[in-house]
Amino acid sequence: MITINPCSAELPGVLGETMPFLCDGTLITLQSAIGGSVLAIALPVGLMATSRHRGVRAVARVYMEFFRGTSVLVQLFWLFYAMPLLTGFQLDKIFAGVLALGLNLGAYGSEVVRGAVRAVPRGQREAAVALNFSPFQRMRYVVLPQAFVEMVPPMNNLLIELLKATSLLSAITVADLAYEGRLLVNSGSDQLIVFALLLAIYFLLSYLITLLMRFVERRAARMVGRERPRRRAARAAEAAR
């Protein structure tokens, strides 16, 4: 069996001259997307937005409105170019990128978390109070597992948004996929082919995210009994009786 390394310079023609660079770019793109900061920010802030304490809610609200209401690109410029002027502290470019994307999309993510938590029926919390769970336990064992199912589809959208938004990092000279593509075009590679490859690679990556999230969604739905895992087994047992 012949295996073909898609990143090899041995590939014929234009592919051989472009793919090694695009592969490097893809790695950087993935690195910036998998920074993980979106989920890390979305969960706590989203929960803060459902807090009983007005002050806590207000902090979450201000964060969400601010980062949703300003452009990622501008936030990126602030973190990477303006902040060093103000504080004298220069962030690494990929780190600045991951941070800006995390803060921006995290704001949308917190809205998703907040909505999902609020959508858990009130009776569920009340039953948890009646069973004397502590507030933390109510959240951890009753509310969050049920809210999680609701979060997965919008989070899928958000992660795809995130993946695509990483192309903005080329504006602060992070050598991501989009950046490598433009370099290739500038140095004389066939525009149509390079741009077509860019499309294909971005699409493949986001489709991978979707597949992964569908898997997560099915697992989660099963956990709250939306789908019955042993339906067939149960029916067989019923019939045997």
């Binding site: 029926p121 009776g123 569920q124 009340e126 039953a127 064992y141 009753v142 597992p145 049920q146 709250v224």
Partner: peptide, 9 residues
Amino acid sequence: FQQFNLFPN
């Protein structure tokens, strides 16, 4: 409760 409120998870 009237609506049982069993935990579906």
